[in-house]
């Protein structure tokens, strides 16, 4: 019971209500800041490509800068979304088991959708 090998800090870490440090909070902000320029660039581009049709959209993605931006955006979207949904689940789902299951599900689904969409961009680009 009296684990003297642990430092005072190690004994209390993780005991707060959040069960972790500021890592999640910081990553949520970093991904948010990263998405501001990406979204402001992507929306007008998407509007232009979606009214100009298939060939234009393909050509647009084949530009290396556009492909880079789109891949960064897709990755950040699913990362930011999984962090956000995690907080919502932690706040409203009170059963510990269901909480862990739904957070795991959200994380796996985000990875799946992120990989799928990025792979599609690469297929068009290559």
């Amino acid at each position: 019971m009296n684990n003297t090998m642990k430092s005072d800090l190690a004994k209390v870490q993780g005991l707060g209500s959040a069960k972790h440090g500021v890592g999640h909070w910081k990553l949520q902000r970093v991904s948010a800041i990263g998405m501001i320029p990406l979204i402001l660039w992507f929306i007008p581009s998407l509007m232009l490509t979606i009214i100009s049709g298939y060939n234009e959209a393909i050509l647009w993605i084949q530009n290396p800068f556009n492909a880079t931006g789109l891949i960064l955006l897709l990755g950040t979207i699913f990362f930011h979304a999984s962090l956000g949904l995690q907080v919502v689940i932690e706040d409203y789902v009170h059963s510990e088991g269901l909480k862990i299951i739904s957070i795991t599900f959200i994380k796996l689904l985000s990875i799946l959708l992120g990989v799928l969409s990025i792979l599609c961009v690469l297929k068009i680009f290559l």
């Binding site: 298939y54 959209a57 897709l74 949904l85 599609c120 068009i124």
Partner: peptide, 26 residues
């Protein structure tokens, strides 16, 4: 935020349709 997370599937559908060819895109 939650709606956008769900709606991001539309964006995935857009790139998947584009990558699958003209027929899927139409």
């Amino acid at each position: 935020g939650v709606s956008l997370s769900i709606g991001s599937i539309i964006l995935v559908a857009w790139v998947v349709a584009l990558a699958s060819g003209l027929e899927s895109y139409s």
